[in-house]
Amino acid sequence: MKIHLSNSDFLRTFERFVRTFDPSEPHVLDVTTHDKWVSVHPAVLAMVAALGRQVPKENVRLDDVTAASGHYLDRMGLFAALGKESPYSIVKHESAGRFIPLTQIRTSQEQTRFISEMIPILHLLPDQADAIKYVVGELVRNVLEHAEASSGAFVALQYHSKNNMVRLGIADTGIGIMSSISRSWRIRGEAEAIRLALTPGVTGTTRREGGTETNAGAGLFFIKSMAVVSRDQFVIYSGSGLYKLLMRDKRIKGFPTLHANPFLDRHRWTEGLPYFKGTVVAVDLSLGQTPEFVALLAAIRAAYSSAIRERKKAGVKMPRFID
């Protein structure tokens, strides 16, 4: 496998980054970097780390990092996650207020520990902290429950004080969304799998309305809705398809409609990308743009119940009128 980290791999250009991924030769991982500057979204690092666990350590190459910002990869834990010795011997500064380096999470206990420890490091306000805890909690749990990924989830976060934004990425090399959703739903392709995964009340564990005793199929819908409201981007890449929620037009005022069908949101769907066996989820959350978390939850609740009513209505036999 080959993958390239450029000088600007963020959500706006995530498809461009994905196209650098070459999944052939799955027993080797060759990571190359821009020669002058490396600047990437945490989801990029999470994906590379997850891929790195699929190959023997000695078959991972991350050499010749010449970019002036190459130490960033070290501080975000990429060399350690890939089992490579870092070429940087910099003095590590206190990470408080800036980032959470790549972390591997394999159990719910590790998840709980990660969530309780990350907030003091990010130095967020209580209301902002709850939103981030919520997103991390739901995304990691999705991996642990549905991905069947032996190496669990790789997570990284970065807080950007300049625009008051948290960038979050999580990746696994499990079965992917299509296989997961297919366990309970007959689907025709990756677009439909992503649509179902983002629809409230749909889970790969059952077709029953209301879900199972432990799964309701609401986590991704909540997170996509948070990104809709805060006018941010949200990406899911799994298999060879990539769904991207595009930023809401700033000229449109007022609280947005939260669609149960993600393809009714302003989005871009790309298919035919290099096949990634697993799932990457990336989200940016502009904390200054997010209304009170409680108001957001109230809007999500209304959208969720409406979606269930619509589905039930669609499944109910109605009077037929004939001549």
Binding site: D130, Y134, G137, E138, G211, T214, N215, F293
Partner: peptide, 9 residues
């Protein structure tokens, strides 16, 4: 302070 929908479910 908060709870996920998954937890409450």
């Amino acid at each position: 302070t908060g709870a996920t929908q998954s937890f409450v479910h």
